[in-house]
Amino acid sequence: MSKPSGHIAQHGFPEDQRATVAALFWEAFKAKLGLLMRPEETALKFLTQVADPLHALCVLDEEGTLLGVAGFKTDTGSFVGGGLSDLAQAYGWLGALWRAVGLSLLERDLQPGVLTMDGIFVAPQARGMGIGTTLLQAIKTEAAAQGCHAVRLDVIDINPRAHALYDREGFVAQKTAQIGPLRHLFGFQSATEMRFALSPVADAARSP
Rank of each mutant, 00 (worst) to 15 (best):
Y91R: 08
L97K: 03
P124L: 07
G113D: 09
A164C: 08
D86W: 00
D75W: 01
I131W: 00
D86I: 09
G130K: 08
S78E: 13
G119W: 07
K175I: 06
L103S: 03
V80E: 01
Q89W: 10
Q137L: 14
F46V: 08
V101P: 00
D75S: 12
N159W: 05
F171E: 13
A144R: 14
I120L: 10
V50S: 04
T65D: 15
T76Y: 06
A138F: 00
A173G: 15
I158M: 12
V80D: 03
M129P: 00
D154R: 02
A88T: 00
L103I: 04
K73I: 05
L115Y: 02
L165S: 03
G147A: 09
D167I: 05
W98Q: 13
W93T: 14
T74Q: 03
K73V: 08
V122S: 10
F46Y: 15
A143M: 12
H55Y: 09
D157W: 00
L67S: 04
G92M: 03
H149W: 14
D154E: 13
F79P: 09
L94V: 09
A123H: 09
L67E: 10
A56R: 11
A56H: 10
V172R: 04
L57V: 11
G170Q: 12
I131N: 03
A70E: 08
D167Q: 13
T48I: 09
Y166C: 15
Q125I: 03
F79L: 07
L136S: 10
D154G: 10
Q125R: 03
L97Y: 02
A173P: 13
N159G: 06
V50P: 01
L103K: 01
P124K: 06
A96H: 05
Q174G: 07
G130A: 09
A126M: 12
G81S: 06
A96I: 00
G132A: 01
T76D: 14
Q146N: 15
T76W: 05
T176M: 11
L47E: 12
D86S: 14
D118F: 02
L165D: 07
L84E: 04
L105V: 04
T141A: 15
I179R: 03
L87E: 00
Y166M: 14
G64I: 04
V122G: 08
G71V: 01
A138Q: 04
H55E: 10
L47K: 11
T74G: 02
E107W: 00
F121W: 12
Q178T: 13
L54G: 13
G102L: 08
Q111E: 15
I120E: 05
S104D: 13
G64R: 05
Q89V: 06
Q137D: 14
A51M: 09
L110C: 01
F46E: 11
M117S: 05
M117K: 00
G83W: 01
G64H: 04
A123V: 02
G77W: 04
A150C: 08
A173Y: 09
A144M: 14
A144T: 12
L84C: 00
G113C: 04
Q146G: 13
H55S: 11
A126G: 10
G77M: 06
Y166N: 15
G147Q: 08
D75M: 05
G128L: 08
D109G: 10
L106Q: 06
G68H: 07
L66H: 05
A145G: 11
Y166I: 12
